[in-house]
């Protein structure tokens, strides 16, 4: 898109007033980018047809910086919500999209964000069907906040529920953990690691869909361990089902440079945020097939078994450590990392 044609370089309060400038912003950037039959109705809302049970998930994206290695806030806002819908065992279809822009945001940056949203939505196979744009005074926001709500239809074979989890069920993840959190940290805090760490932000819905097609209700649970990391999610699960989680440190996929960065900062990768990662709890009978399927998929190349559900230590996460012996993975109190999504 050509900035010359937009006619302004930064976004100001007028763009949120609802008047001429707002229309300008919407027409020239948003509608132009996302044009589709539903959005083009230009109603107060969108009228869509969805059959059967639906899954809805909403999330607000607040992140500093808005651009980082491996992504930006725009694609995160799409992938985050798409993945949340997918974790319910649903096929994401539509997204709502709302911006809160801080006065002074460069139009060029806004355009980049919008284009990333478009690209991510296309990649995930979802349509943006309704939205909102507000502008707040300088100092009342942080460049840009985005809220998305996702709508998806339930996968016919899905039966996702913590209540289905039994002793002996296997815990798998689709790839390397802790990358996103460390990438954001390095970008935001200007921290320097031996090598660049990129966010793994991506959509997981197609992989999830394939898994459900193949294994249906033998999959007990999908979860994306975003904020709080793998450790926090596993604690939640252990508490919800009053069973124990037993992990093997040696099995947990962790890239060397991410491990080194965590070590340098005294962080436990188990508590570092993820974006393109999900964990699943499955019936032990399908463990190898699930792994084989995931490893064939681009988003599950590094899939691994990390542990299993046990009745031995209810509500506790215990890890067999690399140096031998088992350690208790204690729940995170307070935040190990500053708030990111």
């Amino acid at each position: 898109m050509d900035i010359e044609n937009i006619g302004f370089e930064t976004i100001n309060l007028g763009h949120g007033s609802g008047g001429e400038l707002t229309r300008d912003l919407l027409d020239k950037i948003i509608f132009k980018t996302f044009s589709n039959p539903y959005l083009d109705q230009k109603h107060d809302g969108s009228i869509v047809k969805i059959e059967g049970e639906i899954a809805i998930s909403t999330d607000s994206f607040v992140i500093t910086p808005i651009f980082f290695k491996g992504g930006n806030i725009g694609e995160l806002a799409v992938y985050g919500t798409v993945n949340d819908v997918a974790m319910c065992g649903a096929i994401p279809k539509y997204l709502s999209l709302a911006f809160i822009i801080e006065e002074g945001l460069k139009v060029s940056e806004f355009i980049t964000v919008v284009q990333s949203i478009k690209k991510a939505a296309d990649e995930s196979g979802v349509l943006i069907i309704t939205g909102d744009t507000k502008v707040v005074e300088r100092g009342k926001g942080d460049k840009i906040f985005i809220n998305t709500t996702g709508f998806g239809t339930m996968h016919p074979k899905a039966n996702i529920s913590v209540h289905n989890i039994k002793e002996g069920d296997k815990i798998l993840v689709n790839g390397f953990i802790a990358q996103h959190g460390m990438a954001i940290m390095s970008e935001r805090e200007g921290l320097e690691f031996e090598s660049t760490i990129e966010s793994d932000s991506t959509n997981l819905n197609f992989l999830v869909n394939d898994l459900l097609d193949e294994f249906g209700e033998k999959i007990k649970l999908f979860r994306d361990p975003t904020r709080g990391g793998l450790g926090t999610v596993l604690h939640e699960i252990a508490n919800d089902i009053s069973k124990g989680v037993f992990l093997k440190e040696a099995f947990i996929p962790l890239e060397k440079q991410v491990a080194a960065a965590c070590e340098m900062l005294g962080l436990d990768p188990m508590y570092v945020a993820n974006e393109g990662v999900f964990l699943m709890i499955v019936d032990p009978s399908i463990e190898t097939e699930v792994l084989a399927l995931m490893r064939k998929h681009t988003k599950g190349k590094n899939a691994a078994l990390v542990g299993e559900i046990t009745s031995e230590h209810p509500k506790k996460v215990v890890m067999e450590s690399l140096i031998g012996g088992k350690r208790i993975v204690s729940p995170l109190v307070g935040e190990q990392l500053p708030r990111i999504c």
Partner: peptide, 8 residues
């Protein structure tokens, strides 16, 4: 050390 599960 109570971090160790067996000690715990």
């Amino acid at each position: 050390n109570l971090d160790n599960y067996d000690v715990y």
